[in-house]
Amino acid sequence: MLEVGKIKDKLLINGQELKSRLFIGTGKFPQKSLIPDVIEGSGSGIVTVALRRVDFTDKDENIVNYINKDCIIMINTSGARTAEEAVRIARISREAGCGDWIKIEVIRDNKYLLPDNDETIKAAEILAKEGFVVMPYVSPDLMVAKRLEEAGAASIMPLGAPIGTNKGLKSKEFIRILIEEINLPIIVDAGIGRPSHAAEAMEMGADAVLVNTAIATAEDPVLMAGAFAKAVQAGRDAYLAGPGSIRNYAEASSPLTGFLSN
């Protein structure tokens, strides 16, 4: 029964069971006060926050104070241009009491915001040794993902398309390879512009998706968060149900190999 399958269908990261396969970003909302409702509407259990935006000295301005208490805060290293800067950000975050979940973002390209995979691996090696829950954001590449797995990453977060483009799963074939070959949760991050893109990633077997721009810049972010939650669940259910294969050619009415059984 499908129902049985669903009950068993848990997403575990670092031994922790997550209540949703939708992760939320926080950087682009028109008001911080929307964030609690968005999290509620999305059912998300993991929210990522850029340390560069966290103002520890001002309660009203501190974005962390807008995140529901039962959510895991995953600090991201936005702004890091090297492994060293990412490591510094992670350590500052831990010192400041933001926990051990770190989304490593090392970006040296400010035009497309593409990750630097080499520097990301270096940072992952150091931070995993220090006991961080390492969630690296990468361009999808099998060898990079393998090295991150060896380094002790807790998941791999490949981009679907460049950040903020809303273009969907442009890197689908490469993400599919990661899903097949890597024994870590694969979380599609960046580029997911519509709930249908999220469903597509989940149908393909991604373990989760992270959405920021598409929710934060929607006319009604709370409604959009709910739409994404449903799409993620629908995609996951479809993956578990095992969708029929799509055929690019017709069922032949006159089989070419029929003579073999004649």
Binding site: F29, K32, L51, R52, V54, D55, E61, G79, E85, R88
Partner: peptide
Amino acid sequence: YQAVFQDWHYL
């Protein structure tokens, strides 16, 4: 829009 006061933290 949200007025953002802090977008960097020296390292």
